Simulated scan of single mutants.
Amino acid sequence: MFTLFKRKKEAAPVNMDKIPAHIGIIMDGNGRWAKKRLQPRVMGHKAGMDALQEVTIAANNLGVKVLTVYAFSTENWSRPEDEVKFIMNLPVEFFDKYVPELHKNNVRVEVIGETERLPKETFDAMKRACEQTKYNSGLILNFALNYGGRSEITHAVKEIAQEVLDAKLNPGDITEDLIANHLMTNHLPYLHRDPDLIIRTSGELRLSNFLPWQSAYSEFYFTPVYWPDFKTEELHKAILEYNRRHRRFGGV
């Protein structure tokens, strides 16, 4: 089954039978986008919210099941204080401004990360969005907010070690599935916990501590496009490239 998406000069066929069920996006380049336009860096983060709404609805329309977006890492606290404060207010603005539209599109909002460290206003807005959309059955928009992959794995190891100490587990019981069940993505549908496709914008070629366990067999797509300019057409390009891949998962 194929559908056509109009591009500038030609229509590009996207294989609707090969849509990635789970897409992860490292939304990079907001500050450079603003700097290129002689604007403060924070304006790039603001423009990035518009891109996120558009891409979320486009992914939902394509039948993507989970969209995990890297909104704020555990390392981002080292940025200038004013920028961090602005970024921490963005979820408040995003959830209040955009969630009604996402709700209408049957999108469910979820959050992973060390949310207890978030400012109260940010945490409360996040909880409201999750509560408002919890019965929606469409795409899961999964925010990685104050998230770090190594921290996630460390926390999982501590939990498992405690279960061994409490005689709830034997070391021999520890499997990959058990570890996965202790990761922050354990709330996602079992078959869609691991991203099929990870997209990084802005031309950088690294994961930056984003879902290191879950991305073991993900396909990667890197683009020089800054995140605020990554709209529906760019998503289609990424999926077209995914369509061309042959995923072997270590086989032939």
Rank of each mutant, 00 (worst) to 15 (best):
T232W: 00
A238N: 06
I87T: 11
R248A: 05
E110A: 14
M16D: 12
R41A: 13
A21R: 08
P228S: 09
L102E: 02
A156G: 12
S218C: 14
V69H: 09
E241K: 13
G251M: 09
D166C: 12
L205R: 11
A12C: 13
T74K: 08
S215Q: 03
S73C: 09
L145V: 12
Q132L: 15
T3P: 03
I199A: 10
A21P: 03
V111T: 12
G113V: 03
T201D: 06
P195G: 05
Y217D: 01
N15A: 10
Y221Q: 09
R248H: 11
P100D: 06
Y98W: 04
S208Y: 05
E234A: 07
F249G: 01
N106E: 08
P189H: 02
P20S: 05
L67F: 04
A34P: 13
T223G: 12
V252W: 02
N209L: 08
L38E: 01
G149E: 02
F143D: 06
R248G: 12
Q39W: 01
Y226P: 07
S151G: 14
F72N: 11
N30K: 04
A58D: 11
N15I: 07
D166E: 15
G44H: 01
F123E: 13
P171D: 13
N89P: 06
L197E: 04
A238T: 13
V42M: 14
K18L: 04
D82E: 10
Q39E: 14
Q132W: 12
M184T: 03
I153T: 10
W227Y: 13
L207T: 15
P40W: 02
N61M: 03
L188V: 05
N89H: 11
Y226L: 15
F222T: 15
K8I: 07
I198N: 00
L211C: 08
A216E: 06
I87N: 14
N30F: 09
I153Y: 04
N105E: 08
F5C: 04
E121W: 00
A12L: 09
P224R: 05
A59D: 07
P189S: 03
L62W: 10
E110G: 09
I112S: 09
I199K: 01
